[in-house]
Amino acid sequence: MNEAYDRAAELIVGADALLVCAGAGMGVDSGLPDFRGTEGFWRAYPPYERLGLKFEEIADPAHFADDPALAWGFYGHRLHLYRDTVPHEGFEVLRSWGARVFTSNVDGQFQKAGFTDVAEVHGSIHHVQCVEPCRDEIWECSFDVEVDPVTMRAVGELPSCPNCGGLARPNILMFGDWGWVPHRSQAQLDALNQWRRSHRNLVVLEIGAGTAVPTVRRQAELASAASGALVRINVREPEVRHGRGVSLPVGALEALTTLARRTA
Rank of each mutant, 00 (worst) to 15 (best):
E3R: 07
A15E: 10
A17D: 08
L18E: 03
L19R: 05
V28I: 15
G31I: 03
G31H: 11
L32Q: 09
D34Q: 05
F35P: 07
R36C: 05
R36D: 13
Y45V: 05
P47T: 07
K54W: 01
E57Q: 10
D67K: 01
L70W: 00
L70S: 00
L70Q: 02
G73A: 08
F74P: 03
Y75E: 00
H77V: 01
H80T: 13
H80P: 00
L81M: 14
D84Q: 07
V86L: 08
V93A: 00
D107P: 09
G108M: 06
Q109R: 14
Q111K: 12
A113D: 07
G114T: 06
F115G: 08
D117H: 08
H126I: 02
C130Y: 02
C134E: 05
D136G: 02
D136T: 13
I138M: 11
W139K: 07
W139Q: 07
S142N: 13
E146V: 15
T151N: 04
G156V: 03
C161Y: 03
G166A: 07
P170M: 07
P170F: 00
G176Y: 04
W178S: 15
W178R: 13
G179P: 05
W180L: 06
W180T: 09
H183C: 12
H183W: 11
A187H: 12
A191E: 06
H199P: 09
V204A: 02
A209I: 12
A212R: 12
P214Q: 07
R218A: 08
A223L: 05
A223T: 10
A225M: 14
A226D: 09
G228D: 11
A229C: 09
V231Q: 01
R232E: 03
R236T: 15
P238G: 05
R241M: 12
G243Y: 11
S247Y: 04
S247C: 08
S247L: 02
L248D: 04
L256I: 14
